[in-house]
Design a protein around this nucleic acid. Structure first.
Lengths: 193, 193
DNA sequence: AAAAATTGTTGACTATCGTCAATACTTTTC
DNA sequence: GAAAAGTATTGACGATAGTCAACAATTTTT
């Protein structure tokens, strides 16, 4: 149910069995079927969703109705719209499931309670955020400085698991390329130019 | 000296005068002349630098010696390489001053001491991180979904202060464009295509 | 099992961005 | 104050990514 979440918690902060039990009380688990929304543009994001099992994507839709994938999230990752989460303004992003998925979260409304008992929870979130921030910075570096070939090669080397589980045109979207261009990039990479 | 830093602190968390005094003891202030490095590729990043006055940029250098600007930081912003900061591995980024600059920081080694007295300091960092994360997510959205015209227009609307203080070719680098292309983009925007 | 939707590839063509080079102008440095 | 460095613009040209369209293969739906 929430084994992976606690594994990750224990990796980053030390927890007594008692503290763990208390956290367990506040946890909410949710199953999301493939193609169902976890968050829709217009909703307010009220939690940081930890992926216990499955895969999700966050994306925006532009004027022309085109989808642009901002982020994937697989087992052990966290996904949400922090902007909406912080401001309680409606989100401009959609999050939906790419596979049948199970997520875990502690509702924002329970954070204060949890932190009262486990002050380290704040540290945990900060550490997760720092790691996510670093990853995103690397992605920006790739986007502004690499060729499509290099960007894709980098992506494959860092996220081989995603390449295997997600349709190619979604990876193209994530990399800021058209599906056709990514198809040609791959051809060039595999046939050796 | 550190007025802006405390103003920002007080905006996000409540502080007694006593707590403020204690934090003041751990603060280090540093002046960096224009063109001087705050961090060089190869160094380990040991602090989150808060910009009290001035302007900095973080950038990477690719195989061809080309610079790519990852991030600007003006008054009230924080800049660092979180990857290196967390792992204590040598950084791959450079940070240098675009103007004579004054920064404030609490060395990583003093964090535990500070948090002992002001537990809220952890919350402060988390809030700053969330905001920075949101901004970066918007930037990625722009990079993968907008045309150069739109990306630049967005940049000008969000960071008018940067446009006025930073050379145009650096903004081009930040947006993933060549200086020539940005020059033409601007021409098209102002002369109406 | 058939129909529909999704996915990935390829070709022809076009629009756009990067490269190289020349120039003008401004700011910094000595 | 002269020389050097840094900055922005423009033109010509070539490379490359996007667009539109057709098609095959696979998966999902009914």
């Amino acid at each position: 149910m929430s084994a992976l979440f606690f594994k990750k918690l224990r990796e980053k902060i030390s927890l007594t069995t008692q503290e763990e039990e208390i956290i367990r009380r506040y946890i909410i688990s949710k199953k999301i079927r493939k193609k169902q929304y976890l968050l829709q543009a217009g909703d307010v994001c009220k939690a940081l969703a930890f992926v216990e099992q499955g895969a999700l994507r966050a994306y925006s839709v532009d004027d022309k109705g085109q989808e642009h994938i901002i982020r994937f999230a697989m087992e052990g990752w966290t996904i949400s719209d922090l902007d909406s989460f912080m401001t309680s303004e409606p989100s401009i992003y959609n999050i939906d499931a790419l596979e049948d998925t199970e997520i875990i979260f502690i509702p924002k409304s329970a954070w204060e309670e949890v932190k009262k008992v486990v002050p380290q929870y704040e540290l945990f979130i900060r550490l997760e955020l720092m790691a996510a921030y670093s990853d995103m910075q690397k992605r920006i570096t790739a986007l502004i400085s690499l060729t499509p070939e290099e960007t894709y090669t980098y992506f494959v080397s860092v996220y081989p698991c995603i390449v295997q589980r997600v349709p190619q045109h979604m990876i193209a979207s994530y990399l800021g390329l058209t599906p056709e261009t990514l198809s040609r990039v791959r051809k060039r990479l595999f046939t050796g130019k």
